[in-house]
Nucleic acid binder design. Structure first.
Length: 324
DNA sequence: AACGCGTGGGT
DNA sequence: TACCCAAGCGT
């Protein structure tokens, strides 16, 4: 744990995060500098003691490995990502090695993580990083955002977790924790990148070191303590500061997001088609795809969309394969 | 802004 | 059973 670069005399105990005086965020009138949010120190202490030891958190994890983990974690649970992450990096330890293989191999290796388009984009990332960035994952925000499949969350996650830079990471966990602890609402409202970044920025510590750890810590809290359905407030390090708790845990009264169905959708059909292609060692015939879904029109629509997405290659001989 | 995009475990 | 959910992105 490094120290902050303020002029304030350091009052430290061991390697613990700086012990602040617990006042709410605001402006220190005497010094004229912004004070730190009261959430920070308890959260950093809790994270230092309680963080799960996930493979992408090991010291020495490369920026490329962090990027791989972040893309895999886009909408896929941690426990399913872990083995896939190890296998992927075992095979492609750097962008150049992945770029030297085919996109189809990336899709096959992706297996059943879901949303196979991510595999395609991660492969395209490897190509871009190899060709445009000399094999080095960029740390510049705009350069990261220009990479395929890298959006507002992933770009900042790479800055924070790969390069240990101060960056306002916002994911669904962080949105929920801020909604509760800061705004006293049971759940976050509809996502808005601008609003969400502003909210996170207002509690983000000033130094690179405390900032990136804070991002990791608040995300971890949302994942394991401040859970969406059943928060474990009895073991929450932010309970004393939590606005939601202080307000008596009011129930959410905002608009309810409409959950998306899955059974019977094109997505399900696409999943079955991709399953056939992943399992096959080479190109497959149309008949092998026909059997996955009885509705011919819907099956054809799903197949066409996979071709349009670049996930399936129609061959001149009429067969179909993963992309080259 | 709202929707399409996989998968499998939990309730 | 039929939902809900899990470190988003692209359009």
């Amino acid at each position: 744990m490094t120290t902050r670069s303020t002029s304030r005399p350091a009052a430290r105990s061991g390697s613990r995060p700086t012990s602040d005086d617990g006042r709410a965020a605001g402006v220190d009138r005497a010094a004229g500098v912004a004070s730190e949010s009261a959430l920070v120190t308890p959260l950093l202490s809790w994270f230092a003691a309680e963080a799960r030891s996930l493979p992408w958190r090991a010291s020495g994890t490369s920026p490329w490995a962090v990027l791989v983990s972040e893309v895999m974690l886009q909408q896929t649970p941690v426990n399913r990502v872990e083995p896939a992450y190890r296998a992927w990096l075992d095979r492609w330890p750097d962008p150049a090695s992945l770029a030297g293989d085919s996109a189809g191999e990336a899709v096959r290796m992706w297996g059943k993580l879901g949303y196979p388009g991510r595999a395609l984009r991660l492969h395209a990332c490897a190509v871009a990083i190899t060709d445009v960035h000399a094999g080095v994952v960029p740390s510049d925000l705009d350069a990261l955002l220009a990479l395929p499949g890298v959006g507002a969350y992933t770009a900042r996650a790479v800055q924070a977790f790969a390069y240990h830079r101060r960056s306002a990471v916002v994911d669904t966990n962080i949105r929920r924790v801020l909604a509760r602890a800061v705004h006293g609402s049971g759940q976050a409202g509809p996502p808005s990148t601008t609003r969400d970044l502003t909210a996170m920025e207002s509690v983000l510590p000033a130094s690179d070191d405390r900032a990136w750890r804070f991002c990791a810590a608040i995300m971890e809290l949302g994942a394991v303590v401040c859970a969406a359905a059943k928060p474990s407030c009895d073991r929450c390090p932010l309970a004393p500061q939590c606005a939601w708790r202080a307000a008596g845990y009011p129930t959410y009264d905002g608009p309810v997001a409409r959950g998306q169905r899955f059974a019977g959708t094109d997505r399900q059909v696409r999943g079955r088609l991709m399953d056939v292609l992943r399992a096959a060692s080479g190109p497959v015939r149309q008949e092998a795809l026909d059997v996955v879904w009885p509705d011919v029109m819907q099956r054809q629509r799903a197949q066409d969309s996979l071709v349009a997405d670049g996930l399936v290659d129609p061959l001149p001989d009429g067969r179909f394969a993963l992309p080259t």
